[in-house]
Amino acid sequence: MSLTALLDVLLPGDGDFPAASATTLPSRLSAHPRFANTVPPVLAALSDGITPDTVRRAERDHPAAFAALLTGVYSLYYTDPGVAAALARLTGYQTRPPQPEGYDLPAFDPALLAIPAARAPLYRPTPEVIDD
């Protein structure tokens, strides 16, 4: 319960993006082999309740623990299928993995080099040559 409340303070959602509690983030965070243990230290610092103010205080008092939690929270939020779908709708970003398809890009155009290739040498040569 308190975890969900904390996550919704961190990622409240808006017209484009879902609130954390409406995603798979809470369940995946609790079970994640690397990130699950970042939760208890921050929750322990929130015994006065969970509001933006108390969370801000926890961040100030425990910056390292808070940063570790936030890495996990952002990582798992943006890999949630619902968030990915929202992102695709909003930006056209293809939320599939980068491989195996990759992306198309126009090939390098050598005409771009007309100006830089015409420059005089910019480097200083070796002042002398020493043999081994």
Binding site: V9, L10, L11, D14, L70, S75, Y78, V83
Partner: peptide, 29 residues
């Protein structure tokens, strides 16, 4: 990508809270 944008690296980590989603929209891509 989206996770790197939020966690920071090229830019500082994005803020959490009410401002997060707007900051993400401005930055990503």
């Amino acid at each position: 990508g989206p996770v790197g944008t939020a966690c920071g690296g090229y830019l500082p980590r994005l803020p959490w809270g009410a401002d997060h989603h707007a900051a993400f929209r401005r930055t990503f891509g």
